[in-house]
Design a protein around this nucleic acid. Structure first.
Lengths: 342, 342
DNA sequence: CCTTTTTTTGAATACGTATTCAAAATAGAG
DNA sequence: CTCTATTTTGAATACGTATTCAAAAAAAGG
């Protein structure tokens, strides 16, 4: 009276053995057909495919990956999936990788540094590679992946010590060019609304921006912290405008911030670009919406993702490949949020 | 001279056997520890955990799922991940499901109906359940999942024949209420910008909208096709405005369309809501941005996702549970894009 | 201290596939 | 036809885990 039921609902899935039985061949031969092995006679192949079709048989990926040591899975860990830039990134990565036969394990991370539990998931499932967007990998985590033979590519971040491959936009240079552009357009009073202050993207962009101002002996720079959201941009702009009436241009850590800034600026009755210039970063789709027509820095999304996928697949192919770092440039997209003040 | 290399780089991962050897116990016992089985002495458990830590051992999920017949994976197939509504949906589903120990296989589908190859992926990996957002499941596909014992929940769609569970917003009722609202605000000339015409969401919304107008003997309804993108809304609005000068309100298939509409309307010099009223659908975050302040229908995202996850987990738990359909209501969020014309 | 009950343990096996190896079948050469 | 070279096949095994079953150890009861 403990547990003596006859287990009625253990609907066993069909296996290669079942197919073999129907087709009158051995399991090996069935396996060969589905593994794409050519050494099987046309006659039997047909029989096998017919039997498989009848049962609607599909090879079990877990059993397969157990023996081939290839899971055909890639982990993609993202932050800020709600940021349109990263939605696009996810879509592209999915399309590229699934075209190559890989399946995506999606992880939405909340932290600046990828967490132990997230790593564990990926290790347990034996993903062959990992793409980490907008987050960091501790050195020990990196070692862990390496030990498991898992290739890692950082997207939009990099590690100083070259422990894993990385693809990112040259934020430093971009910020310099943006600053130069703003200076040359005659702006005098600058503001920068950053992302979280401990991220490399923020640091690099701030560095580049500041450097140009320093070169030109411009001291008038207000820095306001944000977190890459519309609301943070909105609030930061309000803060800036109440504190500092003279600001004539605002460089934003990303486009979403910039949109928030624009709404805040307009709400207090100032006009863009007549009173205040705004520059974003990313060139997400919304920045070209007529309501905003944001001048921004375009990250070469297609090239970056293509490059990341290539790096990843190459490292999956040859495990001892040395990590590579690809830095892309991008370019300024001029729309209607910056005005010449000369 | 064919292939006689000593296979140097086959870095074998550590297994429970390796841990067992170090800890001086059997593989079974190691397995018991990691499977959370309580029947193991504290002394050995400690030894085992120490050994595992030293090797950084993680159980192989594929081997585990092979024997337990539980992959702990759920497939999530999405369309339009670039639509902020669905980015949010993905984020929430991930958080909910990963909290329950499930891993997500992400599939970005491009088609109205989920494709054979996408189904195959999910079957091969033995996902325990599938969430399908904004796409349909053919009857044969549904059968296939059923045969494999895979639970399916449709999100924002439903099947007439109740073959799988579904969670969605009552689009018909919502459209009726929106129509009623617009009529009572004194509008005379209506437009509806739809999604793809063969989707149930479009059909239901149009039906409800029309019904109310019919009841009130209002004939003045222009229908313009869209595809749930900003651009399509933008273009549809331009079309409407050039064709039909008298239109005083536009009901949009979703918020993104509505934003496109608003930009197009403003671009020709008309004001919202003074000249034209606009209503959206979804209540994505952007609709509360000051530039738009869109009056829209809120889909109860949290409740809907919670419900979908509950249904899915329940069906995963008891395989013979009958599919359930949950229809939610949502409510109108009034902002600043509709004006009384009385 | 012995007997009975309970808990802990390890050997063996199963999960479903790919692959090795040797045997069987076929094709090719003469 | 034969003999050899080649292709096709199946039996056996491995992948790394969970689980069953019986044996061993520990605990409980007297």
């Amino acid at each position: 009276m403990e547990k003596k039921e006859p287990k009625p609902d253990v609907k066993k899935n069909y296996t290669s053995e079942d197919v073999a039985a129907i087709a009158g061949v051995s399991q090996s031969t069935v396996s060969r057909v589905f593994a794409g092995n050519t050494n099987v006679s046309e006659k039997k192949r047909k029989k096998i495919l017919a039997a498989a079709a009848k049962l609607d048989y599909k090879p079990n990926a877990h059993a397969r990956s157990l023996i081939t040591r290839k899971s055909m899975m890639v982990g993609i860990v993202m932050r800020n999936i709600r940021n349109p830039f990263y939605s696009a990134v996810l879509e592209i990565f999915h399309n590229r990788l699934s075209a190559r036969g890989y399946h995506l394990i999606f992880i939405n991370s909340e932290n600046e540094e990828i967490q132990e539990s997230e790593i564990t998931q990926l290790l347990e499932y034996n993903v062959e590679g990992v793409i980490i967007t907008d987050a960091l990998l501790s050195s020990s985590a990196s070692q862990k992946f390496k030990r498991y033979g898992i290739s890692v590519v950082l997207f939009n971040r990099y590690t100083e010590n070259l422990e894993s491959s990385a693809v990112f936009c040259d934020n430093y240079l971009a910020a310099k060019q943006i600053a130069t552009y703003l200076v040359e357009m005659g702006h005098k009073s600058f503001a920068f609304i950053s992302g979280p202050s401990d991220t490399s993207t923020t640091i690099d962009r701030l560095k580049g921006f500041k450097e140009v101002l320093d070169e030109r002996k411009i001291k008038d720079l207000a820095i306001e912290p944000g977190n890459y959201t519309f609301e943070s941009g909105f609030r930061a702009a309000q803060e800036l405008l109440t504190k500092n009436k003279s600001i004539d241009c605002i460089f934003c850590g990303n486009d979403i911030i910039a949109l928030g800034v624009m709404d805040a600026v307009r709400l207090v009755g100032l006009r863009i670009p007549e009173d205040v210039s705004v520059v974003g970063f990313d060139n997400i789709r919304m920045s070209e919406w007529p309501s905003y027509a944001l001048t921004t820095w375009e990250q070469p999304l297609e090239e970056m993702t293509t490059s990341a996928v290539e790096l990843l697949l190459k490292e999956i192919g040859e495990k001892d490949a040395t990590p590579q770092v690809v830095m892309m440039k991008g370019h300024l997209v001029v729309r209607n949020t910056v005005r010449s003040r000369k």
